[in-house]
């Protein structure tokens, strides 16, 4: 099959970007979308041109490195899948596919399709942990945790930190991401002692870094490749209110 790729090219953070159209890229239905970009890149290099820069690593949907707005959707048309898990059988022969970087105030473009997501690290650094030092932990089974709670915590912890939630949100809000981390810890007894402090610190950091407010459009949940639920946002709000009461 052949597709036309309309790709955002931008030489660096300061340069003005533009769409460049690459016609008739040869691929097959069982080739992945990123492999199709590889094919295009290989042909660009053969012609002496610079290849398209994009982030990727595991290509298994778990590292959260890949991103891309494909035909107007973060991670493309498939639901609950990352860009690297997208296969060409999802597209029609001859289709024109538009490929853009995350467009969000929180994620400035570095080059072409690669963006800077270090804001997500900074939010985690503000409080996304349990405070204790290695070496002093009690026996793992000393603290039974109900399966329901553990499973819910696991669902929240499944977040891969890719940034699709903020990229999908018209307000550029990072609530889904932040709430997933806060929820994971709030659901587990290990995380309870610091729950209030954590919620306060992470939310404050998120605001400071210029992410927008949540107005419940649920776009984040719809586009999340890992199916993180917005019930996490409600849980975060509860934790945040509790933290306020304590102030």
């Amino acid at each position: 099959m052949k597709v036309t790729l309309k790709v955002w090219r931008q030489a660096n953070a300061k340069a003005k970007g533009e769409f460049v159209t690459y016609k008739d890229v040869e691929t097959t239905p069982d080739t992945s979308f990123l492999e199709t970009l590889d094919i295009l890149n290989e042909s660009l290099v053969e012609r002496g041109e610079e290849p398209i820069t994009f982030d990727h690593d595991c290509r298994e949907g778990i590292c959260g490195m890949c991103s891309l707005y494909i035909n107007g959707h973060p991670h493309g048309p498939a639901t609950k899948a990352t860009t690297c898990q997208l296969y060409m059988r999802r597209f029609k022969d001859g289709e024109t596919i538009t490929v853009e970087p995350w467009r969000s105030a929180g994620f400035p473009v570095i080059k072409d399709l690669m963006v800077d997501r270090s804001a997500y690290d900074k939010i985690q650094q503000a409080g996304g942990y349990v405070s204790f030092n290695c070496g002093g932990a009690p026996d793992a089974n000393a603290l039974p945790i109900s399966k329901e709670k553990a499973d819910l915590a696991m669902d929240a912890a499944t977040c891969i930190g890719c940034g699709a939630c903020a990229a999908a949100c018209k307000n550029g809000s990072a609530m889904l991401f932040v709430s997933a981390k806060i929820s994971q810890f709030a659901l587990l007894p290990q995380g309870r002692p610091e729950a209030a402090r954590r919620a306060r610190a992470m939310v404050a950091k998120m605001d400071e870094l210029g992410f927008g407010n949540c107005t419940n459009t649920r776009a984040c949940e719809a586009e999340c490749p890992k199916g993180i639920s917005i019930t996490n946002i409600a849980r975060m709000n509860r934790e945040f209110l509790k933290a306020k009461f304590k102030d």
Binding site: Y129, V130, F132, C134, G135, G136, A137, P138, D139, A140, N141, L143, P144, I145, S146, K147, A150, D151, A153, M154, A157, Q184, F185, L188, Q190, G191
Partner: peptide, 21 residues
């Protein structure tokens, strides 16, 4: 010790209905 350490960090390992790992 590794398992103890990870559980203390909040790693959500799979559990049985009784709440144990």
């Amino acid at each position: 010790n590794i398992i103890d350490q990870c559980v203390a960090q909040g790693v959500p390992f799979a559990r049985e209905y009784g709440g144990l790992l």
